[in-house]
Write a protein that binds this DNA or RNA. Sequence first.
DNA 1: TAGCTATGTGTCTTTTGAACACTATCAAAT
DNA 2: ATTTGATAGTGTTCAAAAGACACATAGCTA
Lengths: 252, 252
Amino acid sequence: MNLQSKKNKKELNPNVSVDCVIFGFDLDQLYVLLIDSGSTEAFSQARMAVPGDLIFDTENLDEAAIRVLRELTSIENIYLEQIGAFGDPNRIGKKDSDREWLEAIRAQPEARVITVAYYSLVRMPNFNPKASSFAKSAGWAPVKEVFDLAFDHYDILQAGLEQLRRKIKIQPIGFNLLPEKFTLSQLHKLYECILDKELDKRNFRRKILNLNILTNLDEKQIGVPHKPSQLFEFNEENYKKLSKEGFDNFGF
Amino acid sequence: MNLQSKKNKKELNPNVSVDCVIFGFDLDQLYVLLIDSGSTEAFSQARMAVPGDLIFDTENLDEAAIRVLRELTSIENIYLEQIGAFGDPNRIGKKDSDREWLEAIRAQPEARVITVAYYSLVRMPNFNPKASSFAKSAGWAPVKEVFDLAFDHYDILQAGLEQLRRKIKIQPIGFNLLPEKFTLSQLHKLYECILDKELDKRNFRRKILNLNILTNLDEKQIGVPHKPSQLFEFNEENYKKLSKEGFDNFGF
DNA sequence: TAGCTATGTGTCTTTTGAACACTATCAAAT
DNA sequence: ATTTGATAGTGTTCAAAAGACACATAGCTA
């Protein structure tokens, strides 16, 4: 079988997969999107995984990640960034539950698979995962409560977290996790959740405002049982200007 | 054929390769290690590539990178760090010279290959590349003079450079590029070469000395036609201490 | 011994980071 | 109507780090 016929048949490449670590935020804590194999085994985190699957030979890695995420969770239109490749020969066959899962979904469950991991941040309320394909369920799990996952996905999650922490210091990526209109307190809370430490309120507000990437909407929260907060939106234009000039870090 | 027999036969995985971007420094400029396909074509940069080859199904990616580098250039004992995966379906077949090379070295020259790129820094004089396997020659090329390479290796080189620039601000990796005993001026020059900009001499010296990762050897250069410089060595112990406490950046 | 060349050194100014406490505004309860 | 509870919003001071800047020194060579 030559390459051309392979292309037409959109064959899965048995050796390469993509996995997607999708972070969400509900204004209180950080979540990660997981799917469940629906295995016969007792429910446990070892049955859960981040969405991922083999790539087609015709698509590039970024496209594959977008497709796989859509197929497993119905989530679309998000920007994914590569974390890196994970390729230990035993990365997917260590646990019994891993092998059971692979036998259920893979034509060649014994094949050696290296995976390319991606991560992204989304506004949780805008993305209601709906399980499909081999995912028996899909949903958000608090990152702090995840201690184990199928395959090497716990390692992949940790690598995603590290990259998120590194990135948020040099790019205002956090806005993808918030509603369009948000308060400085919400943004503040988000940074604290991601970096897992307290940040001084006044210093935070000063620094973030000095970046000039927020637009004050002159709108207030309504119906809150306390002093209502100003609402802001992310100013993409100014952000792009700032990115080009280059800014080194937010210094948190 | 099952996995076990594959393992015994150490089969090459036709779909996954590793590529190694190795940087060197000769106290004057930054170099990258390239191999030549020795193609029949006229000599050109499109014939050159960074060392790389398919992985075995039995080895992990890091091991594969080390092995491939050794096989192609006889370079051993270096620490490689992953850059990321490159997987465009057309990444290796765009140019005629690419296809000619693949036909010469691959059992399945048409196969779709995703590659995992690595980078490293070495002391140039300690690593005299000797071409072997399918590399017809191997040698150092000044990074500033490389404008084109085989496959997508020019992109991979640029990604390596970016990672190097990012890394050198937060880790004193540069010491791998210098002789064991070096002067502050040499270190200074190295930072200027990597970051491609001038750095104030006095500020540089102050900052780097304040990190306490250099040991003054109380030795001087000899035979130089100017005031001889103090020699320093890298203090790994203090560096490790510093790494654990965590330091954010060198601020250059 | 004069000249060349790169080394080595200190101060001042500006910018940035970190610590810190009180008043204001709304809704809900009384 | 008043009180209470909850979060928003705001400046100053001190310490540390960054950045700009110029001249004497030590060895070699001619």
